[in-house]
């Protein structure tokens, strides 16, 4: 995947020089290893800062909300699906966008890499299929495919679903993956076990809202957790306030979440908040045969009423 960068730069410079776009949203090297940061290029010189490797896990669709300019945007499979969401939710017009599609092989899970070594990682150099991680007293080579994020290991849409340019040939889509293994496990628990499971899961949450801020779906001008008149949810660190935030946020993502994993990658406490949105994603798939962000011509299940919508829960 690191070979993509030359093509990304070539396309980006062409678009800017021909004035087809006002800016291009891409990635530059992050200040800490394994998290590249989003950046905006307005000139060819800016484009020289662009990077592409397996540390581009942030979802760039997040930066499109309400923009008025003509924008070029670099999009992996999941970013492209969130761009589709943005288009059908009227947060951006298709005509404003030039989508530079990147066939993706998965993004790295920092905590998996950190778990392989005992001291701080200072540098990570990515080769074609491996990563060389090093710190003050060690150097280690790992296979990139062994350390990609959970959501990427079960991703069925690695290729962009919508694009104007493609930086490389499409990659093979994964088949025979069990997408809902984690969710099946939770569903099999009784209610007491579930309660304990979530209690444990959220006990380290510091309510920094990084998960929400990284999520392209969370674009409301005032989030329900920030509202004070009326105050929908308490502002404290009480577990019930924390849960209310997480469960309600997850419901707001129902039928929209693409399982891009940006929320999890943003979390400083390594909480797998995806487990909530993934359940809703599973329900949407099973009840409405719906996967978010695949087509700009279809309305999401929560937007439309059908006489045969499942309603077995209403007695």
């Amino acid at each position: 995947m690191i070979g993509y960068i030359d093509k990304i730069k070539e396309i980006s410079k062409g678009l800017l020089e021909e004035k087809k776009v006002d800016m291009i949203i891409g990635f530059r090297k992050g200040t800490v290893p394994m998290i590249n940061e989003p950046c905006v290029a307005k000139t060819s010189a800016d484009v020289d800062n662009f990077v592409w490797d397996s540390s581009c896990g942030i979802n760039l669709a997040n930066y499109l909300t309400g923009r008025k300019e003509k924008i070029g945007i670099i999009a992996k499979g999941c970013d492209s699906r969130n761009i589709v969401n943005h288009i059908i939710e009227n947060k951006i017009n298709r005509e404003q966008l030039t989508i530079i599609g990147v066939p993706c092989k998965g993004m790295v899970d920092r905590s998996k890499v950190k778990a392989l070594v005992s001291s701080d990682i200072e540098e990570v150099i990515e080769k074609e299929d491996t990563m060389v991680i090093s710190g003050a007293d060690f150097e280690k080579t790992v296979k990139t495919s062994d350390v990609i994020s959970k959501n990427c290991t079960i991703c069925m849409h690695r290729n962009p679903v919508i694009f104007d340019e493609l930086v490389a040939e499409e990659v093979d889509e994964q088949k025979d993956v069990n997408r809902y293994e984690d969710i099946d496990k939770i569903e099999a628990m009784d209610s007491g076990e579930k309660w304990n499971y979530f209690e444990d899961m959220f006990k380290s949450c510091i309510r920094c809202y990084a998960c929400r801020n990284a999520c392209p779906l969370c674009y409301c001008p005032t989030c329900f957790v920030d509202e004070s008149k009326p105050q929908w949810v308490g502002k404290s660190q009480d577990p019930i306030d924390i849960w209310t935030f997480h469960f309600l946020r997850a419901y707001h993502c129902a039928g929209r979440c693409t399982d891009c994993g940006a929320c999890v990658r943003a979390c400083p406490m390594d909480i797998d908040v995806r487990l909530l949105t993934k359940k809703l994603e599973k329900d949407c798939f099973e009840m409405f045969n719906w996967e978010a962000g695949l087509s700009i011509d279809k309305r999401p299940p929560l937007d439309v009423f059908n006489a045969d919508d499942p309603d077995g829960f209403i007695k």
């Binding site: 007491g192 579930k194 309660w195 979530f198 209403i314």
Partner: peptide, 13 residues
């Protein structure tokens, strides 16, 4: 999320 199943009911009347 761990609320006992019998505690929540939906009905259309």
């Amino acid at each position: 999320m761990g609320i006992e199943p019998g505690r929540i009911h939906f009905s259309w009347v």
